[in-house]
Design a protein around this nucleic acid. Structure first.
Lengths: 144, 144
DNA sequence: GATATATAAGATACAAGAGTCTTAAATCTG
DNA sequence: CAGATTTAAGACTCTTGTATCTTATATATC
């Protein structure tokens, strides 16, 4: 898999928070509500949302009417922010063959081809914002 | 990581077998020799080479002067063959968010962007042969 | 045929990732 | 203030990937 499970859960949950914030105008969404709708473990998602909170991507609030919400406007949060917080950015800097010395000066035979593509992937995830994905989701719903 | 460790070892070992076959004209290379030169566990590499042998990418021969060798000409073995045997091809067909229903008809918001790139990656690994990588390695050595 | 060499196969051990559970702390409501 | 709600934190378990070890089996050489 490209991302760890935790990372895909983080992306899906962030996106759900975004749409709820935009459509319902709510500031904090209970993690229980997110885990129910995404059909995944509440406790596991809690741990992941804590990581996003530490990374200043989310804000959290305890007690009744509490939950998690975006710490910044959805158009200012990119997928790279979420990926970096959960999985780190090794994927976008590592050699495809895991060779530590591989680089421009001493390339492995796959270096040129992979470096080009991993940078393209990095740029794509950097350009993709939660607001953009939410918009995309809405358009898909309309088309069905 | 893009590939499992076993998969990167498989690629590196296959490539080493290729260069030894081309340069020294030997048919079978002992796994011990490969693990020594690649600096990784002999027993682990043995298991991986068994997978490649089962997949008809390698041939093996026991006893003195035995070892493993390419089952076909190096220009007919692609990286996709090796990757498919060790890690499988899920990476090139799966949704980036791990959503089972994701596809052209019911796309997740990342579908279009990721599908394009994962197909490009697939084509690249499909076009890359062991012979091509060995050639690349030789050119790199000349440039240093 | 005896011995040494080398892979084959499978059992076992270790580590990391994924997921669960429990307890604590903060906050709101009545 | 009491009780309900909700996140925080960390211990714990389960599973999977990674790695090692042991015992077969096949082959070549002498």
């Amino acid at each position: 898999m490209l991302f760890s499970k935790g990372c895909t859960y983080a992306i899906r949950a962030s996106l759900l928070v975004t749409t709820k914030e935009i459509k319902d105008g709510r500031k904090f969404i209970p993690i229980r509500e997110l885990s129910d709708e995404l059909d995944l473990s509440f406790h596991f998602l809690t741990k992941i949302m804590q990581v996003l909170t530490e990374a200043k991507i989310m804000e959290s609030f305890r007690g009744p009417n509490g939950g998690v919400g975006l710490a910044r406007p959805a158009r200012e949060i990119t997928l790279i922010d979420v990926i970096a917080a959960v999985d780190g950015l090794d994927l976008f800097s590592e050699c495809a063959l895991g060779l530590p010395g591989c680089g421009e000066k001493t390339p492995c035979p796959l270096h040129a081809a992979w470096a080009k593509r991993r940078e393209d992937l990095h740029r794509m995830f950097e350009k993709t914002t939660l607001a953009g994905l939410a918009k995309e989701l809405e358009l898909n719903a309309l088309r069905h």
